[in-house]
């Protein structure tokens, strides 16, 4: 211990204090300050860059999600449209069929009506002609019959016979 106290020298002590404290302040101003600031700045920069990258990634994710959603919607819409179109087409076909059917029935009905009318006309014509023909035949027959007296009487008798009272 005595040796230690003997070794102590005031001059060296003062010099060491002054030089060291001076060194601390000099280095603070010209070295540690700027170095630590730069390092902080750099770390901050790295952190910011990482954050930004993370944000960008999230945004990207959002975007892809959006895209997916829009695509899905579009697909759904397309499906809807297709369905509608199909339905419309089917409707139209059905309508057309019905119309055609109706038209056809109408035509057939008309045709039938016409045929019926024609038939009626033809029948009535035939009836008329038959009536005329029968009349003329009857005339001729009556004429032939009525030319002979005996025969007239016979006819009347026959006819009377047929009539049962």
């Amino acid at each position: 211990m005595e040796k230690l106290i003997e070794q102590f020298s005031l001059g060296l002590f003062v010099w060491q204090l002054v030089l060291f404290v001076g060194l601390v302040f000099l280095l603070k101003k010209f070295a540690w300050g700027p170095i630590l600031n730069s390092v902080n700045e750099r770390e901050e920069g790295i952190k910011n860059a990482l954050d930004e990258a993370e944000n960008a990634r999230k945004e990207m994710q959002n975007l892809t999600a959006d895209n997916e959603r829009i695509l899905k919607e579009a697909r759904a819409e397309r499906d809807l449209l297709l369905k509608e179109a199909r339905e419309m087409k089917e409707g139209m076909i059905a309508d057309a069929k019905e119309e055609a059917k109706m038209q056809a029935t109408k035509v057939i009905e008309q045709a039938q009506a016409t045929i019926h009318a024609e038939k009626q006309a033809a029948i009535s014509e035939i009836k008329n002609q038959v009536a005329e023909l029968s009349l003329s035949i009857a005339e001729k027959v009556v004429r032939g019959e009525l030319s002979d007296k005996a025969k007239q009487t016979k006819l009347v008798e026959d006819m009377l016979k047929e009539v049962t009272l």
Binding site: G11, L19, L26, P34
Partner: peptide, 20 residues
């Protein structure tokens, strides 16, 4: 010792201010 302290101080100042 004072001289060495002084020189070391200079050396440190030189190295670290250049580094800064």
């Amino acid at each position: 010792n004072v001289a060495v302290i002084f020189l070391v101080g200079l050396l440190m100042f030189f190295i670290f201010s250049r580094m800064a």
